[in-house]
């Protein structure tokens, strides 16, 4: 067994409303033992679908995947013994039970003995800093603490591979930070602890992951360490411009030569638009500035920026992550 997780040309087609939806299109990735692997992609990219297949909740339409050397479709019971799944934005558990009672419930389903279950629950609650809420009803916990509980549940069985589907979805900055740090720490501490995490937060993928696969419309577009992915953009120029008016229109760059891609972020609160454009040559930027002046937009700032994973995505797809949405926020 060379890789702890491996997928071979996974295709998944859903029925859909009027026509079939291809959620995954020949996805082939591998993850090594001990790695934190990120699956980064916009909404509807197919991240959850891939996680569901790997955790044996869903069958692939075509192709095969292996976890720990076991086929997810044919040896699901073997796969289940070494994994667990934590999905952000969900609170699996019974609202009427306390946090610790919920953990106890799952520990027993995993067949843990009373003493080791108790010790493990206590440890996890201390590590994830919610022992003061141990006796609190789950329904009364805040979103952040619910997610801590959710993560603790996912760690009860000491999984070899931990699957995290947008683990920090909807959490405040501080809690997100804590959970990320804890997960990284867990993977290190467990030596062979492997994590597959999906996210649409660039920083999360960049900060946590040893390697990242960028997925869009069911296809893996690139897969490498965050650093190397960004290094590939070294020859390009990435410029960021902030202009007044939330209605600024940058679509004119569509027809310009030398423009690899761009993204725009609009803020209604400040009535500004932030525009990031990737160019093959620096001199194209002056043409863009000229066009902007023609539109009578006030330019608040303009400068070259270091490439991020979002820029990797822009370079691959030609648009930003949150394109098409009316208002977005920086992530």
């Amino acid at each position: 067994m060379s890789h702890i997780v491996e997928t071979c040309d996974i295709v998944r087609v859903f029925k859909g409303h009027d026509k079939p939806v291809k959620a995954l299109d020949k996805v082939s990735i591998y993850i090594d033992e001990g790695e934190i692997f990120g699956l980064l992609g916009p909404n509807g990219a197919g991240k959850t679908t891939l996680i569901k297949i790997l955790t044996t909740l869903l069958l692939p339409t075509k192709g095969e995947a292996y976890v720990g050397g076991f086929s997810v479709s044919k040896e699901a019971h073997k796969v289940r013994q070494m994994i667990s799944l934590v999905s952000g934005g969900e609170t699996p558990g019974y609202g009427i039970l306390s946090a610790s009672e919920n953990l106890w419930f799952f520990s027993q389903l995993y067949g843990l003995s009373s003493s080791s279950a108790k010790a493990r629950i206590k440890q996890l609650m201390t590590d994830l800093e919610f022992d003061e809420y141990a006796k609190t009803r789950m329904s009364k916990l805040s979103t952040g603490y619910k997610q801590r509980l959710n993560l603790a549940r996912g760690l009860l069985n000491n999984p070899k591979v931990l699957f995290l589907d947008e683990p920090t979805l909807g959490l405040d900055v501080l809690t997100s930070k804590k959970l990320r740090a804890y997960i990284v720490d867990w993977a290190k501490r467990e030596k062979e602890g492997t994590v597959l995490l999906t996210t649409h937060y660039m920083a999360e993928a960049d900060e946590m992951c040893d390697r990242v696969a960028i997925i869009d419309r069911g296809r893996i577009l690139a897969c490498d360490s965050p650093l190397r992915l960004k290094q590939k953009l070294e020859d390009n120029f990435i410029m960021k411009v902030e202009v007044s008016s939330v209605q600024a229109d940058f679509s004119f760059v569509d027809d310009m030569k030398g423009v690899i891609g761009y993204s725009q972020t609009r803020s209604i609160q400040t009535d500004t638009t932030s525009f990031k454009v990737m160019l093959t040559e620096e001199k194209i930027f002056s043409k863009i500035m000229l066009k902007l002046k023609e539109q009578n937009l006030k330019i608040l700032s303009a400068n070259e920026v270091e490439p991020t994973l979002e820029d990797v995505y822009i370079s691959l797809v030609g648009r930003g992550f949150e394109e098409g949405e009316k208002t977005t926020h920086e992530t």
Binding site: H77, I83, T91, G93, G95, Y110
Partner: peptide, 18 residues
């Protein structure tokens, strides 16, 4: 409602006994 079904399903072999 409780969002537990999939997690019970994933704990090896326990769904039918549950």
């Amino acid at each position: 409602h409780y969002e537990v079904l999939k997690h019970i399903y994933l704990t090896p072999g326990s769904l039918q006994w549950y």
